[in-house]
Design a protein around this nucleic acid. Structure first.
Lengths: 195, 195
DNA sequence: CAACCGTTCTACCATCTGGTCAGTGGCGGG
DNA sequence: CCCGCCACTGACCAGATGGTAGAACGGTTG
């Protein structure tokens, strides 16, 4: 693979798991078997590297979610498709979801950048929720806040390993499937209008 | 105030907002108008300072939640009391909730420490959920996973400022109240068994 | 072949980091 | 009175950090 891509990959993994400040360029370079100066050749500063990583991660995130939606049925099937997609990411690319959280913790400059990249998807999601509400399928409420609550629940169930341990469960593969099932039941009763 | 207490306070604020690795002892000291060596006099290393901060934050967290429960009614009132308490913390001591997230990101050594401190409270919460389920007040499901989902939703609604911006809302005081109201509606339909 | 270019490296630097050490000043007890 | 203790600080250090300068390497092109 091209070095530039390998660097982006390694940086995403590192930033998404050990955090931005918790990761040194030397550490990323060592993981890739190259010298830190090679990283700085392709990305002039650590900050610019983060920007590139965010752009890439944002694109990958959107691609995964849009792809899941494209292969999904209508109505509730869309929620299930998104949840499935997020749990798939939690299992195969945990650093992607880790970066999401890390970026939102870093605040304005990086967070704004990621937000702009995800904006269209967020807009589409609120439109979906509003439509389902108008159709009477989903309980009426503020769609933006509903989205925030659902987002938090999904990301939390998929990634909060330490909280999982706190409630006495181990983060195994089988467990991930159970979590997904329970989450879907949770979301169903939280969202769906009473039959 | 005693210096030791002031250091703990400053460190909690810093760790909870800028993160552990993102905070230098010099920065904490400068905020307090003292020298870094003074911090190291009271806490022999940055790691031990973090431990002390976690212990303090854990105790404060438990105190706030237990206090809220003590002043609450039975049944659903307990959930409302907890949510109210968390939103109060989000407004007045955001660093406390920030530290919660930071510690869970840092993983095992600090996370385990905090987990042990919160363990009794978590256990009481699952017992509460199980009882409410047996009484038919709450939909039957795995109480531990339900707790994780509810925890994520609550913390997210109370603290995810950047995600809030992503859905087009500004984190104002009035907004916080709206978020709390929407969250309670969300939790009510997610948890309560159909009437 | 020679000039060139993109890429990677070695060598180096200023700054910051957590941490050590030897004090210094105040204050209470013998 | 002064001794010792507590809280605090200035001077210092070794290692890590992000970043720069310049040489070397291999391939492409005139």
């Amino acid at each position: 693979m091209a070095t530039q891509e390998r660097v982006l990959d390694g940086a995403l993994r590192a930033f998404g798991t050990r955090g931005y400040e918790g990761t040194s360029l030397d550490a990323i370079a060592a993981d890739l078997g190259i010298r830190k100066q090679t990283i700085l050749y392709h990305f002039p500063s650590k900050e610019l590297l983060l920007e590139a990583v965010i752009d890439r991660a944002g694109a990958e995130l959107v691609a995964a979610l849009e792809g899941a939606l494209a292969r999904s049925g209508p109505g509730w099937g869309r929620v299930e498709a998104i949840v499935r997609s997020v749990f798939r990411l939690a299992a195969r690319r945990p650093e992607l979801l880790g970066l999401l959280r890390e970026v939102s913790r870093l605040g304005p400059p990086p967070a704004t950048q990621l937000r702009l990249r995800l904006e269209p998807f967020v807009a589409a999601a609120t439109v979906y929720l509003d439509e389902e509400m108008r159709a009477g399928a989903i309980r009426r409420q503020d769609s933006r806040l509903l989205l925030l609550a659902a987002y938090s629940a999904v990301i939390g169930m998929a990634t909060e390993v330490e909280v999982l341990r706190a409630v006495g469960l181990e983060p195994t593969a089988r467990n991930l499937v159970r979590r997904r099932a329970e989450l879907l039941a949770f979301l169903r009763s939280a969202l769906l209008a009473e039959a």
